[in-house]
Design a protein around this nucleic acid. Structure first.
Lengths: 219, 219
DNA sequence: TATTATTTTTAGTCTTATCTAAATTTATAT
DNA sequence: ATATAAATTTAGATAAGACTAAAAATAATA
């Protein structure tokens, strides 16, 4: 059984690994977890002893298959809880991270699988990051944006392209969030703007730039 | 900010206090938490120093108002999560305790208040124990049982009188659980049995004894 | 290449929450 | 009332996870 701290380190190394290639160095982990390099050294040695990481002194650390599997379980839990918090409890996209950081450590495979089912097996979290399934499989990143749709097309929103932008705030204001259904009513050649019904409400206008930054699932 | 361990001690002392009067002794807490008396002494001294408990050496411990307030917050969280697990995720009554033991320590007042709202402010958990509201107020224990109803009366199920019995298993089998709607169709003088529609389905028969052990809210 | 700067690791300390064993207090029984 | 039993507390130890300061290894630079 992994401790909360071990899980946090595994998740951190997993995230850093997916951003760069090669071994992850001590300081990067320390920065990311807001801890000190000495603490990191201690922990990665522990993880290596447990067969969760491969570690070469002074060279850095990588997850083993076993370690990556555990990291993915934590990521899965984190993102499913985020979906729950946003879609079911009505939290905003930008307010759920800290709570999900806690919920991701609840121990119960049954719980998380039932939660997954309850949420109808979402593929992406409210920030647009993919949710590993029960086997650790991750859906490919979404590629389809609102801007490819034609009048009459209907879709659901997966996420925004740029997670940390004003766009999220704008979308919040016009009530567009994860899972929102959109219908393209009209496309105006003149300025490239889209007329879109949000959840079958009155049509609103979205610019090309906005449309190009909303990932969608075409229905 | 309380640690997980402090919260567990507070909750334990709260529960023991509600079962007996006078100060709670060290061994009772140790038994309940499956720890050793020496550990309990350490912790209750710590709680006393924080103003959460009043403690007299060799005499036992009681919660202060402040301590009871904190304990009630934990109890509230525990029981709300139990409702969520049973009503929303489809867990059985008897399988939720261990998971709720973990969830009760998630730190976020907003979260728990949103969860409360999401669950439509339940007054009792799946075991029939009352859920403190956001101010720590507890509803009085239910007193009305199914056996006082007349044909035509409709009610919802609050809980079973005897929590740790075969009755729960029986009720599970006939799909009666927290919040289930019942309608009394007929009462048979001959053997005191009730004919009852469960969620507007086909009528089934319940004995007097069963009817006397189901707490209900009359509608 | 030699020297300095940076990174990483080691060694030793601290805190929290445990534990065991011993000492002390309270309760029980002759 | 006094000896014995039971309960409780103290003292000291341990483990996890963090820290600081110092040592060692690697990287960068003159």
């Amino acid at each position: 059984m992994l401790t909360q701290s071990e899980e946090n380190y595994l998740k951190c190394i997993y995230h850093l690994s997916s951003k760069s290639n090669g071994a992850i160095n001590t300081n990067a982990i320390a920065d990311s977890l807001e801890t000190k390099a000495a603490s990191v050294t201690d922990m990665i040695q522990k993880l290596a002893n447990k067969g969760l990481a491969s570690y070469v002194k002074y060279k850095g650390v990588n997850l083993t298959n076993k370690g990556e599997k555990e990291a993915l379980k934590v990521v899965r839990k984190h993102r499913l809880w985020e979906v729950f918090l946003v879609k079911e409890l009505g939290f905003n996209w930008d307010k759920v991270h800290d709570i999900a950081e806690q919920l991701e450590h609840i121990k119960s495979t049954t719980l998380i699988d039932k939660l997954d089912k309850f949420l109808a097996y979402p593929k992406f979290d409210p920030h647009g990051d993919p949710i590993p399934d029960a086997n650790g499989e991750i859906a490919p990143n979404p590629t389809t944006t609102l801007s490819i749709l034609k009048p009459g097309d209907v879709c659901t929103v997966i996420c925004a392209k740029d997670t940390s932008s004003d766009l999220l705030l704008f979308l919040d204001r016009i009530n567009i969030s994860l899972g929102t259904q959109l219908e393209v009513v009209d496309y105006l050649e003149f300025d490239g703007s889209y007329s879109v019904k949000v959840d079958n409400g009155n049509p609103i206008t979205l610019s090309t730039k906005v449309a190009e930054n909303i990932f969608i699932d075409k229905l």
